[in-house]
């Protein structure tokens, strides 16, 4: 008689590895073959996870159609079964899986569209946090500015792509009524800021300098390294004006942190 562990190992092998061998003798036929019974569970897992991916990546789905999407999803599920019992976590590696898939090689922008959708998903579920804007900065005494360190709000995600994925995303929304044509010879890449404002996930294009600045801050960089990176990335970059714009978009987290000291 198989132990509980043997039973679960055999069942999992039937579902994920199409190998019902070890568990089949321990399933009652009772009018329907063990293979058909296991097949139902296998189908439910693969179809259910594909459905979850369609939910999380609606633009990729729309771009390639259901049959092709399901082929991508199926190979992803086989290679990357969920590692958590919460489906909100499922799909983080899907963009990389698309990038590595020969199936999608003729659609080189598809992995970055998927990355943008995963960023959207993460922003949608991210924690709330109050914003640090110009008014909050004005309340900090100037002599403490050098001790200030700015961090991004939990919903902020950054994405740079050599493809016009922001436009691709935009023209593939159900409510978009214009011409969805995109000419890759005429449209260039983009840098995108993703963040949630209240209930809404917003997407904003970023300049090279803005992107470099936020990217440094997202990696816990100091203000000086972030500012220097911004100026290096974009000649003639208007740093103060861009920071005012970014603060207006509520990119930064409040309370801002200080090197060795309480908040003013």
């Amino acid at each position: 008689m198989p132990s509980l562990a043997d039973t679960q190992r055999g069942f999992s092998a039937a579902v994920f590895a199409s190998d019902p061998g070890s568990i089949r003798p321990w399933i009652r036929a009772n009018g329907l073959s063990p293979e058909r019974r296991l097949g139902l569970y296998r189908n439910n897992t693969f179809l259910g996870l594909s459905e979850a991916l369609r939910d999380g990546f609606p633009v990729v789905h729309r771009l390639v159609g259901t049959e092709f999407f399901d082929a991508l999803a199926r190979s992803f599920v086989a290679e990357h079964p969920p590692r958590s019992g919460c489906l909100l976590d499922y799909g983080a590696e899907f963009p990389a899986s698309i990038a590595g898939s020969e199936l999608a090689a003729s659609l080189p922008y598809l992995p970055d569209v998927a990355r943008l959708e995963w960023a959207w998903h993460e922003a949608f579920h991210a924690a709330e946090a109050p914003a640090f804007g110009v008014a909050e900065l004005a309340a900090v005494p100037p002599e403490r500015h050098t001790q200030l360190s700015l961090r991004l709000r939990p919903s902020v995600r950054l994405l740079a792509s050599p493809w016009p994925v922001l436009r691709i995303f935009h023209v593939n929304q159900p409510e978009y009524s214009g011409d969805p044509s995109i000419d890759l010879d005429r449209e260039t890449g983009c840098r995108v800021l993703v963040l949630r404002e209240g209930a809404e996930v917003l997407l904003h294009p970023l300049s090279a300098g803005e992107f470099a600045c936020l990217e440094r801050l997202s990696r816990e960089g100091s203000l000086e390294t972030a500012f220097e990176a911004a100026i290096r990335a974009e000649p003639g970059f208007d740093l103060p004006a861009s920071l005012v714009r970014l603060m207006g978009l509520h990119v930064f987290n409040h309370p801002a942190r200080f090197a060795g000291g309480a908040l003013p």
Partner: peptide
């Protein structure tokens, strides 16, 4: 693939300039 990707034209398999 059979979807709106048919409306995305041009571009070679090489990444274009710009972006990163």
């Amino acid at each position: 693939p059979k979807g709106t990707c048919e409306r995305i034209v041009g571009g070679s398999l090489e990444a274009p300039q710009g972006g990163k």
